[in-house]
């Protein structure tokens, strides 16, 4: 029953959102692509000009580049593994009948609401500090040598912090999915003699598959661009040991003013994100059709 009038009205109502997002997506991206083929240094404007693909070549030959791609992938995959598996286990636990379930939920979800700089600073200083941190206290209590987390295992430390922030999210989503599972179905399976493991594999897991897909998609979007956690803990170091792609681009652009190289890195980050997005969006699109 959509008349010509309502259709044009609908277009008119959608226009601001679509135009804003389109401009926001296209304009900066085009500028970035343009700069990626330029030599440009705001501190040294004499040597500016078109340089072809040499920014990409420079960025590629920089040993920090491969390291940063690797670190980006390690961070995303490790955190996804920890939070999805941990989230499933935690959701199964919290779903059990218990006293004070509401408070348990509140305690578990809380880290998600902590802003990244606070999370990183609290872990850096009060938990993982090699001298005064709680981990160091625990290590000394057992007579062990405290670990210098950010000096010796910077990536592990950052993975722990980021996983702590995202585990609550995964748990909450998976718990919500779990609670929508039909109780009668569970009972029927139980009566048929299905044990806990087979009930989990054949009933619970398929039921949660959509929620798991969504958790992976959303987390990937945010994990590909982890920034504040690295800035306030290791600052990318030691060396480039904990530099991910976003952090490397930031360093090139705003600390070294190598705009051309930074833009080339930005374009690579877009390509990487698009590869991931392609698979993720397909999965979500399929799931949303149901």
């Amino acid at each position: 029953m959509a008349t010509q009038q309502t259709r044009s009205l609908a277009r008119f109502m959608m226009a601001p959102s679509v135009v804003l997002l389109f401009v926001w997506m296209i304009v900066p991206l085009v500028i970035t692509i343009w700069f990626s083929f330029q030599q440009y240094n705001p501190l040294n404007p004499i040597r500016d000009g078109f340089v072809g693909f040499s920014n990409y070549a420079l960025f590629y030959s920089n040993p920090a580049f491969l390291q940063s791609i690797l670190n980006t992938l390690i961070l995303v995959i490790s955190v996804l593994l920890i939070t999805v598996i941990g989230g499933i286990l935690l959701a199964l636990l919290i779903d059990q009948p218990m006293w004070g379930q509401g408070i348990v939920r509140i305690l578990v979800i809380s880290p998600f609401f902590v802003m990244p700089p606070v999370a990183a600073l609290v872990w850096k200083n009060m938990i993982m500090h090699p001298q005064y941190g709680v981990f160091a206290d625990i290590a000394r209590f057992f007579g062990a040598q405290p670990i210098d987390w950010f000096g010796q295992h910077p990536m592990t430390a950052i993975i722990i912090i980021v996983a702590w922030q995202w585990l609550p999210f995964a748990t909450l989503i998976l718990l919500t999915a779990l609670q929508s599972l039909d109780g009668e179905q569970k009972e029927a399976a139980e009566m048929d003699g299905a044990g806990f493991i087979s009930r989990f594999i054949y009933l619970t897991l398929p039921h949660m598959s959509r929620a798991i897909t969504v958790v992976i998609l959303i987390q990937t979007i945010f994990l590909l661009s982890v920034y504040a956690e690295i800035l306030v803990t290791t600052n990318g170091g030691p060396g480039y040991a904990s530099t991910n792609l976003p952090f490397l681009v930031y360093q090139k652009a705003l600390l070294e003013f190598k705009i051309g190289q930074a833009s080339a890195g930005g374009v690579i980050a877009v390509i990487l994100a698009n590869i991931v997005a392609f698979f993720a969006m397909r999965a979500v699109g399929k799931n949303l059709d149901k």
């Binding site: 500028i31 970035t32 930005g266 980050a269």
Partner: peptide, 8 residues
């Protein structure tokens, strides 16, 4: 990714 458009 936000960094891709940081400088623009």
């Amino acid at each position: 990714p936000a960094v891709a458009v940081l400088f623009p």
